[in-house]
């Protein structure tokens, strides 16, 4: 079983991101489960969401404490939330950032990191506003490329199934992130 934890802020689309991934993974013929840890439902508040992927039906129905990988939609969350808590040793952290992975050496020492400018890509495709872009579909392109938990074809299909608005733009954002995400760097 692969367990991935998403960290974002209300309005960035972390919860929908895990739902899209659950659908996409299922389209690849595997079992999936996504689940949000809601606090209060308000814009800007820290949000955690979870995704499980397995070859057999998933029975465990709890939060994820020791994720295989992390997806961080807003790296500034690190000041509020201990993001890497419980992350497995070889875990990969995918961060929405215009910076290079090596610039996160202090924050995520010992882990493997990839970065993708998901905010910039979302703005380019008019997803959300320039001040608060909806970065979920862009970050998923990076997840597909770096973690390989889903094929890019199924991801695009999943976006078409679960994203009723700006479907083409969201699919294009995922595609661009897939192509432009950085290499994975050991910090």
């Amino acid at each position: 079983m692969i367990e991935i934890r998403f960290h974002g802020r209300g309005g960035q689309g972390a919860v929908v991101a895990t739902k899209i991934l659950a659908t996409s993974v299922f389209l690849d013929g595997r079992y999936s489960q996504s689940f949000p840890a809601f606090g209060v439902e308000r814009r800007g508040a820290p949000v955690t969401a979870f995704l499980r992927v397995d070859e057999k039906p998933i029975r465990i129905r709890t939060e994820i404490y020791e994720p295989d990988h992390l997806v961080v939609l807003d790296p500034l969350l690190v000041e509020q939330v201990p993001l890497a808590n419980g992350l497995k040793k070889d875990g990969i952290i995918i961060i929405n950032s215009n910076k290079k992975p090596v610039e996160f050496s202090d924050m995520f020492k010992g882990f493997r990191v990839a970065t993708v400018p998901a905010g910039k890509i979302a703005v380019k495709y008019h997803l959300g506003s320039p001040q608060s872009p909806i970065v979920n579909t862009a970050i998923l392109g990076a997840v597909a490329k770096v973690l390989g938990v889903v094929t890019p074809e199924s991801l695009i299909e999943g976006i078409k199934t679960d994203v009723p608005a700006y479907t083409e733009n969201n699919a294009a954002a995922a595609q661009e992130a897939y192509e432009t995400v950085s290499n994975v760097v050991q910090l």
């Binding site: 895990t18 299922f26 489960q33 689940f35 129905r61």
Partner: peptide
Amino acid sequence: LDAFFLSHTSEP
């Protein structure tokens, strides 16, 4: 059904 553990959990 349990709040969130089912109500907001997606699965096939």
